[in-house]
Amino acid sequence: MTATLEAPVPSTDTDLAVRLGGVRKVFGHGAAAVTALDGVDLEVGAGEFVCLLGASGCGKTTLLNLVARLDEPTAGDIELRTSRPAVMFQEAALMPWLTAARNVELPLRLAGAGRAERRARTAELLDLVRLSGAGNKRPHELSGGMRQRVALARALASTLDGRGSGLLLMDEPFAALDAITRDVLQGELLRVWRATGSAVLFVTHDVREAVRLGQRVVLLSSRPGRVVREWSVTGLAPSEEQQVVDEVNAALREVISSHAAA
């Protein structure tokens, strides 16, 4: 069945990964100012997989950057209940001068971990994304999908220190990949998510991807970005899934069309 939630998913305070309250972000000053986000309230539970959906220019990426502390909100507050969030971008952005294993090791090195610990953790993470054999390869020797998996392992290395729950922020990480690779990587991501128990905030503009991956899909409006609607999409049967996809698509179209009128 389709569940359109009137109220945000109730969650007790203790098992939250991140909470955004009245977050507002304005770029520029005076007449040239652009309001990217306005009054965004969002909660992600510990271990929850939330997909953030919206048309271009709705501030999805801005929102993620705020949570990742790459940028500061103009107003409102962002409360992180986890260790430093792991971030993945649309490009793998691996350091081209480091091997895959060294790339995964980099955040551990930055955190000052010892050599033996770094080695062990790196091997573990490469194994998690099934790239144990490719540790010595350089980024240019890997395919796009393999690079994104290295980037996932590196992101996880930056956050999960083995204790507590983590938060994984993903900014359209599969958008630049071909259909089959994307399919495989979505499966991998779900597997890694289950294995690590980490919460995920996944930004995408692909409705089908959002419904397939997420437990909850959050639709943002554009300029300024606001939370318009949410769907709980966990445990849907295939037929229901198609129905939700159609419904979300319709809502997304509505949001986009409203801009043509304005």
């Binding site: 430093r84 971030v87 971008f89 952005a93 980099l106 955040p107």
Partner: peptide, 10 residues
């Protein structure tokens, strides 16, 4: 993107 990655990696 590389300095940004550096920042999110800590």
């Amino acid at each position: 993107i590389l300095p940004r990655v550096g920042k999110v990696l800590g």
